[in-house]
Design a binder for these strands. Structure first.
Lengths: 199, 199
DNA sequence: GTGCTATCATGAGACTACCTCAGGTTATCC
DNA sequence: GGATAACCTGAGGTAGTCTCATGATAGCAC
């Protein structure tokens, strides 16, 4: 759940390297939440007690650091999908997962944009995790569609458009917002079938 | 429609000042569309044939430049609302205006964010125009609600959440997107009333 | 413990962009 | 043809990104 160093199996890693890697990651999470995805990397290095070069050694790009900092959240989102599918009726499972996803996507300012880009760009660090999440969301969608309660013409990509739109609004809208719950409700209403046809 | 210098009435302006103001604005529009709202201001100045100080003289902040560059678009959006209200049934007028709004909000990458901030922050250059647009949208919404075809519990602020979410998705989603039309359709479906109640 | 070596850390510095301001220029008015 | 307010300039301070030559050291073998 916390800071599992990722390339531990590839090569023998030195203890100081692991220590710094973890320290940078912990600082980065706080910095991103405080200042958004474009927080100063120099500040993160300084607050971690390492030089800027050390940060770049472990995380060659900002995207790599963001990916590492949000990896656990994405993973738990995927497992949440499995759990919801196993314990809730399909429509409730979808709703619950979407709510969770919107919350995670807006962990800090700028995350949605990074995740959305990762979803459709295979060259980015988060791409694999995003694709996995895409699949687990698609499964929930298909189940809900199979019950006939969600309109059949809604595609997984469109589901993610709705999700990321909701997350962006949650990040950027007026202060008196309710954290995306209302947006999700409106969007889900649009996605459910109705007696008189989809439109 | 084009480059009307704004503070023309306040003081006698020199011809060279007006010339530079217009040149910067023309360059800025192109630069924003090519590189997004965070295009280099130094490049804009250079391509306009003026020094960086001249750009800052006319547009003290980036927000001021963006506001000036998008002023016409916002104004035409407001007049589109009046025209739609006068010539179309309320629901169609709302739909037409929303489509137009989504298109304008996503003129270039980063615009939605600026407009959304302006909407709720009275200290920003675009605030007045945003508020005016907010009002004209709210009027269309109220008319559509009066026909009973749009759910009565939808507030103007929520309408703008939906709009800006759609615009953000149009800006950032997958390449094979359709320009927000599908998102608008889904969202409008959620906003319309249904025989079996809103949820 | 000694030595070896791949791994790791350092931070100066090149680069880019933002924004300011003191000093110089010029359009405009009378 | 002055006077002057409006305007322009661009060097320079600040801040952030990212690289790389140099040096340090953890971990291993003996």
């Amino acid at each position: 759940m916390q800071d599992a160093a990722p390339y531990i199996a590839q090569r023998p890693r030195r203890a100081d390297g692991i220590r710094n890697y973890d320290a940078i990651l912990t600082t980065a999470r706080k910095a991103f939440e405080a200042a958004g995805a474009d927080a100063s990397l120099e500040d993160i290095a300084a607050q971690s007690g390492v030089a800027i070069g050390t940060l770049y050694r472990h995380f060659p790009t900002r995207a790599a650091l963001v990916e590492a900092a949000t990896r656990d959240g994405l993973a738990s989102l995927i497992s949440h999908a499995d759990q919801a599918a196993a314990t809730l009726p399909p429509l409730d499972a979808l709703r619950s997962w979407m709510s969770q996803a919107i919350q995670h996507f807006s962990t800090f300012r700028g995350l949605v944009g990074i995740l959305t880009r990762s979803m459709y760009d295979a060259g980015t660090p988060s791409h694999a995790a995003c694709a996995a999440m895409h699949d687990s969301g698609a499964r929930l969608l298909r189940s809900a569609q199979a019950t006939g309660k969600i309109r059949a013409d809604l595609t997984p990509d469109e589901l993610f458009d709705l999700l990321s739109g909701a997350a962006w609004v949650r990040e950027n809208s007026h202060p008196g917002s309710d954290g995306g719950a209302r947006f999700l409700e409106l969007v889900l209403t649009g996605a459910t079938t109705r007696p008189d046809g989809p439109t």
